[in-house]
Design a protein around this nucleic acid. Structure first.
Length: 430
RNA sequence: GGGGAGAUUCCAGAGCGGCCAAAUGGGGCAGACUGUAAAUCUGUUGGUGAUACCUUCGGAGGUUCGAAUCCUCCUCUCCCCA
């Protein structure tokens, strides 16, 4: 059995850990859980840290439990939810749960007969029948308001500078989450909850509850919140979240996301998001520092994560596409691609279709109204003036007019908005 | 229940009768420089038939030649007292 805490420690994945956790885990197989909000039917990379913790946990010979927060997710956003809405939500919830599970299987072993196979549970299952009265009597009784108020998450919300206040629902959140822990402790002998550092307060409410109600001992471990060196929010791009679902974020975009991390972040991320061992990471980091322009870390990071999530084939496709788009790709090369390769490379790149007659319309018209490359004529005009718009890799000016000459394989036009944003116009010729 | 403060463009936050599509900062996007990095500098950041017009400053009315700015009512938020 590997030392789980030690493993996370060198990876920089420990923010805080409750004393005794390491010792407890050394005693033998244990169970730990991480909560996931089922707000969508796909994970996004913000979830990945928690998932990786579970993966390492299973790797170390322990049993990982992924808890889908169906109940907690419902109260997380308390504004304006009617009963009807909640019913609908249950249906969505189940679907989301299925989506999440299929993705979690990429990381965790749910099926084999090993004793530490992963589990997926949904707190909605044990919360839905729990009446309010029963809850405040059986659970609320064990935790004082004073204790709950002392939490940072609460203090911040009721303090002087707070501008929004805090509803009772939000206040009770930590207790509901605490109960989850108690429940898993009883049902699965789960003694550890993990999560982001912002979860520390909620987790310790759980351990406290277990101690007061059952005189049991439970533990907490949190990882630092993932940040970017420039202070930006991790996991967001201009088009929103980076999802694991290839329908939401194409493998190409996914690959590009990791490839684009800054040097500083790449050193951190490769430890967190890949399974590479310490020697490999150290070696790669040294190589990278010696020749930073080769971006060894970013490439390896992108390869590892993309393979893990989308598989080898998708990785190769993403790399091919990247080479053509960012390598020394020229207009000629572009035009020489056969249709299959072209479509393959640009899979996931936004597309829109127009008819061949439309091609004769003014440039701005085509770029905004007809295809939605730009939100408005004004935006299109501005960007063209800035030299940010390329057609088939050539810069264009405002008086440019599309013609048959622009069609790749008689069908496609490749429009670039800046260096990184591609767009395909498919011209139907009939 | 009483008293006070407030709701502005993606966010924060100025503006308090015309010069306001609305300062400033952040964020976003783009250009230059580069290594598809960071930092830096520059431009841009409601819409259009663009020296003008249209829609926008919590909602609905009103005053005025003219309102984000004044008045009335409403909705919501925060703070203090009970």
């Amino acid at each position: 059995m590997k030392n789980f805490v030690e493993e996370l420690r060198w990876r920089g994945m420990i923010h805080d850990v409750m004393p005794g956790t390491e010792e407890m885990l050394k005693e033998g197989m244990a169970a730990a859980y991480v909560g996931i909000d089922p707000t969508a039917d796909s994970l996004h990379i913000g979830h990945l840290v928690g998932v990786m913790m579970l993966k390492h946990f299973q790797n170390a010979g322990h049993q990982p439990i992924a808890l889908v927060g169906g109940a907690t997710g419902m109260i997380g956003d308390p504004s304006g939810k009617s009963q009807e809405r909640n019913l609908l939500d249950e249906y969505t919830l189940r679907q989301n749960q299925e989506g999440l599970k299929s993705q979690l299987q990429l990381f965790l072993d749910f099926h084999s007969d090993i004793p530490n196979k992963a589990l997926l549970v949904n707190n909605y299952d044990w919360m839905k029948e729990f009446s309010f009265l029963d809850f405040i009597r059986d659970i609320g009784k064990h935790i004082t308001v004073n204790y709950m108020m002392a939490k940072d998450s609460v203090k911040k919300r009721i303090g002087e500078e707070s501008k929004t206040g805090m509803s009772f629902t939000e206040f009770s959140y930590q207790l509901v989450q605490g109960y989850d822990f108690l429940h898993l402790y009883k049902e699965y002998n789960c003694k550890l909850q993990m999560g982001g550092s912002d979860q520390w307060g909620n987790i310790t409410t759980g351990t406290e509850l277990i101690r007061r109600k059952l005189s049991g001992e439970a533990f907490a471990l949190t990882c630092p919140l993932i940040t970017k060196a420039d202070g930006g929010k991790f996991g967001k791009t201009e088009s929103g979240n980076v999802w694991l679902d290839p329908k939401r974020t194409s493998p190409y975009k996914f690959y590009q996301f990791w490839l684009n991390t800054s040097d500083e972040d790449a050193e951190k991320y490769i430890k967190i998001f890949t399974m590479l061992n310490q020697e490999e990471v150290t070696l790669l980091t040294h190589q990278h520092q010696a020749e930073p322009h080769l971006r060894i870390l970013q490439k390896r990071l992108a390869e590892e994560v993309t393979t893990m999530v989308h598989g080898n084939k998708a990785l190769e496709a993403a790399k091919d596409a990247s080479a053509i788009l960012f390598g020394k790709g020229t207009t000629d090369q572009l035009k020489n691609l056969d249709e299959a390769t072209f479509l393959d490379i640009f899979e996931g790149v936004p597309q829109s279709e127009i008819s061949s007659e439309t091609l004769n319309q003014p440039l701005l018209n085509i770029l905004s109204e007809q295809t939605g490359v730009f939100k408005s004529n004004g935006e299109a005009r501005r960007m063209i003036k800035e030299g940010a718009v390329l057609v088939n890799k050539n810069k264009i000016s405002e008086d440019y007019q599309f013609s048959k000459e622009d069609l790749i394989q008689n069908t496609f036009i490749l429009v670039q908005k800046g260096k990184k944003n591609y767009f395909i116009i498919k011209v139907n010729s009939f």
